[in-house]
Design a protein around this nucleic acid. Structure first.
Length: 423
RNA sequence: GGAGAGAUGGCAGAGUGGUCGAAUGCGGUGGUCUUGAAAACCAUUGUACUGCAAGGUACCGGGGGUUCGAAUCCCUCUCUCUCCGCCA
């Protein structure tokens, strides 16, 4: 969430920028400011009353010690009315705080100034298209290839779990594992510390990265233990740093993690769910960075370059998009998407999303850092990106690399698979 | 699943109703000493809100209660640990 300080100081700018995200913030920001004033006044009153109370109590303590019981009792008489006032004010205060918080979490992150207006996907800015695809005839979509080579079984997944839970078999499973290892190796080489996080998180963690309370429906919830299956490794990895004050020299933090990801995808049944395009369970390797505010945009660039170089190594046709306001997520200030071209479907598939959240997540997480000479800790910036999400990469490899000898495994993966063709 | 113990500052660990934001040790930071380092010694060392500042207020797992006053007493929730059982 945004900081109150910023909202107060940059009210007009925030309203203007949020319009790019098609969010009219005028009303809510006015409410926030009014409510905060109330909060502040009430706090002040409570503090004063409390101070009065404290000094009376101290006095009583002294009198008791000196055995001046009567005098003590006299003062005691004064306290009950103050006590009542305090409890009344405290109630007002906590109401104000609660309401304020409710409002604050409804305000999206401010898009960076370079983010262009737009409604959705169709308005995203294509920064670059690298089309390395080879013309081929009789291309099969990956779901047919999966069957032909018996490497992914969708029906079996339906039997065991339901739609969206494919079963990978043989070379399909091995290719999957090779991709995970390749991505982790690339990320480690680039200085990211590998993490194996839990796949299940508690409520606090869900809240910390913003899935809760609003997007509750997107996660699988285990009621008995009140735990959630992670929709991305971002959730457990970023929450490592919840309520943490890092030392300046610990920055930047660079973590990478493979995890299975679980998404309910409620309401997204329809045309784009065929095959591997949209799943309830899928594999992803994530990169996360925590930086000083002044470094975060430079870091975003390096993360984008890093992801690009992985895609290039796989030899897939790809393009890079800068998301427009309408497509930039609630918590993000600036997002770049990577899409690979899937030859048979003749569709671009999103395989990575790299975002700078600035201090928006950090504020929720209470993730701060402190320089050696700083008096106060300040909010860090968080960034993350997929490097990369597996299923669509898998789909693109299958569809783009069809040859008479079978599916040609990208060269960089051969050391990880141990075979060159799926046939 | 059964039985028990516990949750205090970066860590360890005192504190069972008043002067406790909290002893002490370790760690961190600054300094003295030293050619340098170590050792020793001295000082300092949490977070948030509020205020120009001095200061005020809150925080000893969370919530509630008793009391003039709670880290300390009561209720409740959560979590952690130990032992037994089961088990990858």
């Amino acid at each position: 969430m945004l900081t109150l300080k910023l909202i107060k100081e940059e009210k007009d700018l925030i309203i203007k920028r949020l319009a790019i995200k098609n969010f009219d913030a005028t009303q809510i920001i006015n409410d926030v400011i009014a409510l905060d004033d109330k909060r502040k006044n009430t706090q002040q009153e409570v503090d004063n009353k409390q101070a009065e109370m404290n000094s009376l109590s101290k006095e009583i303590g002294k009198l008791f010690k000196d055995k001046k019981i009567e005098e003590a009792n006299k003062i005691k008489g004064q306290t009950s009315s103050i006590k009542e006032e305090i409890s009344q004010l405290n109630k007002e205060l906590s109401d104000a705080q609660e309401n304020l918080h409710k409002l604050l979490i409804q305000i999206p992150n401010i898009p960076n100034e370079i983010v262009t207006p737009g409604k959705g996907e169709e308005d995203n800015v294509i920064l670059k298209t690298i089309d390395t695809k080879i013309a081929m005839e009789d291309k099969l979509p990956h779901w047919d290839l999966a069957k032909k080579y018996d490497i992914i079984d969708f029906e079996l997944g339906v039997k065991i779990s339901g739609a969206g839970f494919p079963v990978y078999k043989g070379k399909g499973a091995q290719l999957q594992r090779a991709l995970i290892n390749f991505f982790l190796a690339e990320n480690s080489k680039a200085g990211y510390l590998e993490i194996q996080p839990p796949y299940v998180v508690n409520e606090d963690s869900g809240y910390g990265t913003g899935q809760l309370p609003d997007k509750e429906g997107q996660m699988y919830h285990m009621q008995l233990d009140n735990l959630y299956l992670i929709p991305t490794a971002e959730v457990p990895v970023t929450n490592i740093y919840r309520d943490v004050i890092l030392k300046e020299d610990e920055l930047p933090v660079k973590n990478t993690a493979y995890s299975a990801c679980f998404r309910r995808e409620a309401g997204s049944y329809g045309k784009d769910v065929r095959g591997l395009n949209r799943l309830h369970q899928f594999d992803k390797v994530e990169i996360v960075q925590i930086t000083k505010p002044e470094d975060s945009y430079e870091t975003l660039k390096t993360m984008v370059n890093h992801v690009e170089q992985i895609v290039v190594k796989l030899g897939l046709p790809y393009r890079v998009l800068q998301l427009c306001g309408g497509d930039t997520s609630f918590t993000s200030a600036l997002t770049y998407d990577f899409e690979v071209f899937s030859a048979a479907q003749e569709k671009w598939l999103e395989v990575s999303s790299v975002s700078n959240f600035e201090s928006y997540q950090a504020n929720r997480l209470k993730l701060r850092y402190k320089g050696k000479n700083d008096k106060k800790p300040q909010l860090a910036h968080t960034l993350n990106g997929s490097a990369l999400a597996l299923p669509r990469i898998m789909a693109a490899i299958l569809e783009n690399n069809q040859t008479e000898k079978g599916i040609k495994v990208p060269e960089v993966l051969v050391p990880f698979t141990g075979f060159e063709y799926i046939n």
